[in-house]
Every structure is written in structure tokens, then in C-alpha cells.
Computed example of a mutant assay.
Amino acid sequence: MTATLSVLFVACWSSGFIGAKLGAGSAEVSTLLMWRFLPLAAVLVPIVWLSARRRKTMPTPRALGRQVVIGILSQSGYLLSVYWAVDLGVNTGTTALIDGIQPLVAAALLGPVLGVAVPRMQWIGLAIGLAGVAMVTAADAGAGTSAPWWAYAIPFLGMLSLVASTFVQQRAPTSTPPLQALAIHCSTSAIVFTTLAIVSGAAVPPSVSTFWIALLWLIVLSTFGGYGLYWLLLRRIGITSVNTLM
């Protein structure tokens, strides 16, 4: 079961970069992200709230606050950086590769933060991966793309945001049910991105079909598939194994 979920996670997580590229040409970043999370929040919150009431598993204020922080870091911060970079002209493949050095950063922090030992062979593998990411990023930046040089730092910020959210989750004293956590994260992102869209005057969705295709892609494959499986596998196999899959 875990092996099957791992394969699905790799496919769904990678699909998010394709969805970002599909949506980038049809709407503003804030518009796309607003309409990605508003329907999710509208559907998930009532279902999860009724279920929690029936089972008496309502989160405590402290647990709720922790999940809001995790949602801001892992969804709002991470996704805004990825979509912004793609919108600025950074190649989606390069963005995905930069995101791929997350295991190296997470592994470097495992010891001091969580007290987990990292095998030497894993360090060697991650170092080789980092070298590959650096080479590809440098080649892409020097290939005369439309993206300004500083745009390549934005995916790094998003990657750090996701790493931070993972450690916040791992240090939680109690476990929040996955669907409940997903509802809190999506609601938080819906508030953040709706506010950004309204302030920037980009709340009205375009009528072009590519926007809605990208939206459906992102909701089904990226949110329920990639993001949902990320937290589920984190509980099953741990941070090191999940980051290796990434």
C-alpha cells in the first residue's frame, strides 16, 4: 500500500508544475490560486466540521493555530513562490529542480532540529543532486530567458517555506487527522489568496477554457493527490523517506 501511494505521490507532486504552467498564461497568479482554494475550502470545511462534531475530534485552539501556520508555510508561501517564478519566466523544469534540493536542506536540519541521524550514503546522493540542480539552474539563467536573475531565488524561498512547515508538523505534540489538516490548510490559503486577489483587483476569473482546465488539474492532481499524499506519507514513512521521493 505504501509503495503504491509513493508512486502516486511522485506523479501527482510533479504534476503541480505542469498545472502552474497551464494557468500562468491565462490569469494572474493571485487569481489562479484564489479560485484553486476557494472551492476546496467551501467543500472541505462543512464536511470536516460535521465529522469532527460527530466524532468529538474538534482541534484545540493550539492545534488549530499550528495547522494555520503549517498551511501558510506549506501552501501559501510555497505555492506563491513557485507560481510567481513561473510567471516571471523561470522554466518550470528549473523550478522543479530547485524545489528538488529540499531533501538536502531537510537532511542538514534533521540532526539539530529533530535529532535524526542521516546515513553517509544519503548525504553523498543528496550532494550529487545539489550539484546537478546548480548546473541546470546556472545553464537556464544564462540561456537568455525572459526571467530576471533574481527570479531564480524565489523558488529557493518557497522550498525553505515547505521545509519549515514540515519541521513544524514533525514537532507537533499531537496528531491532527489528515483530512482535518487539509481543510484548515486550504481555508487558510483561500483567505490569503482571496485577500491578495481583491487587493490587486484580480479576483474575477477569466472565461478562457485553459484557466478552468488548469484549475481542475491543480485541485484534483496537485492538492488532493500531491499535497494530500505528502502529509499522509509523512506520517507513514517519515520526513527522510518522503523527501527522498521528492
Rank of each mutant, 00 (worst) to 15 (best):
S74A: 15
L73W: 03
T57Y: 01
R66C: 02
L38F: 06
V69S: 06
A41L: 04
T60Q: 09
L38D: 05
M58Y: 01
A41S: 15
V48Q: 07
T60G: 13
Y78E: 04
V48Y: 00
L22V: 15
F37L: 13
A42I: 13
P46D: 09
M58R: 09
S74Y: 05
G23Q: 12
R53S: 05
G71V: 04
V68S: 08
L22G: 08
L64R: 00
R36L: 09
R55L: 02
R53W: 00
A42E: 06
G25W: 09
V29T: 15
W35M: 12
L33T: 10
G25Y: 11
G25F: 06
G25K: 13
F37H: 13
L32D: 10
W35P: 14
T31I: 10
P59Q: 03
G71T: 08
G77I: 04
V69Y: 00
I72S: 11
L32V: 13
W49Q: 04
S51W: 09
L50R: 15
V43S: 01
G65N: 01
A52T: 07
G71M: 03
W49Y: 11
P59K: 06
L44K: 02
L38E: 07
K56L: 04
L38N: 04
A42D: 07
A63T: 10
Q67C: 14
E28M: 12
R36E: 12
V43F: 05
F37T: 13
S26C: 09
L73T: 10
G77L: 05
G65P: 06
R54C: 00
